[in-house]
Computed example of a mutant assay.
Amino acid sequence: MATRAERAERVERWKRSGLSAEKFARRQGYKPKQLYWWRWRLRVDGASCR
């Protein structure tokens, strides 16, 4: 299982890539839904830390 820092890095690389979630995830070897979930979880975690 990826750590929070690893998930944040993957989401950031996805954003910088300019690719769709589908293309980016498949190139990296994971499912597009994972990217969406990681992004959502990071937002939720960030909001609860404030």
Results as ranks from 00 to 15, higher is better:
7 R>D: 03
48 S>T: 03
25 A>V: 13
34 Q>D: 05
36 Y>R: 00
5 A>V: 04
10 R>E: 08
34 Q>R: 04
45 D>L: 13
41 R>S: 09
19 L>F: 10
8 A>V: 04
15 K>N: 08
4 R>F: 06
15 K>M: 06
18 G>Q: 10
45 D>Q: 09
17 S>T: 01
32 P>A: 00
35 L>C: 03
19 L>G: 05
29 G>P: 01
49 C>K: 15
2 A>K: 14
2 A>L: 14
23 K>A: 14
17 S>K: 11
7 R>F: 04
14 W>N: 08
26 R>P: 06
7 R>C: 04
24 F>N: 06
1 M>Y: 13
30 Y>H: 06
2 A>W: 13
6 E>W: 02
33 K>Y: 07
25 A>K: 03
6 E>G: 00
14 W>L: 06
10 R>D: 03
49 C>G: 15
8 A>M: 08
1 M>D: 13
21 A>I: 11
23 K>Q: 15
36 Y>M: 12
48 S>V: 06
1 M>K: 15
50 R>N: 11
6 E>K: 03
48 S>A: 13
25 A>E: 14
30 Y>W: 13
7 R>T: 01
10 R>V: 04
39 R>P: 05
30 Y>E: 01
23 K>G: 07
24 F>I: 04
27 R>E: 15
16 R>D: 10
21 A>R: 11
25 A>P: 02
35 L>Y: 01
15 K>S: 03
10 R>S: 08
14 W>R: 07
27 R>S: 11
25 A>M: 12
14 W>T: 09
49 C>P: 13
19 L>E: 12
38 W>Y: 03
16 R>C: 09
5 A>M: 02
20 S>N: 07
28 Q>V: 10
42 L>A: 05
1 M>W: 09
3 T>K: 08
1 M>E: 10
18 G>W: 11
35 L>V: 05
50 R>H: 07
34 Q>C: 08
7 R>A: 01
46 G>Y: 01
36 Y>A: 10
1 M>Q: 14
31 K>P: 04
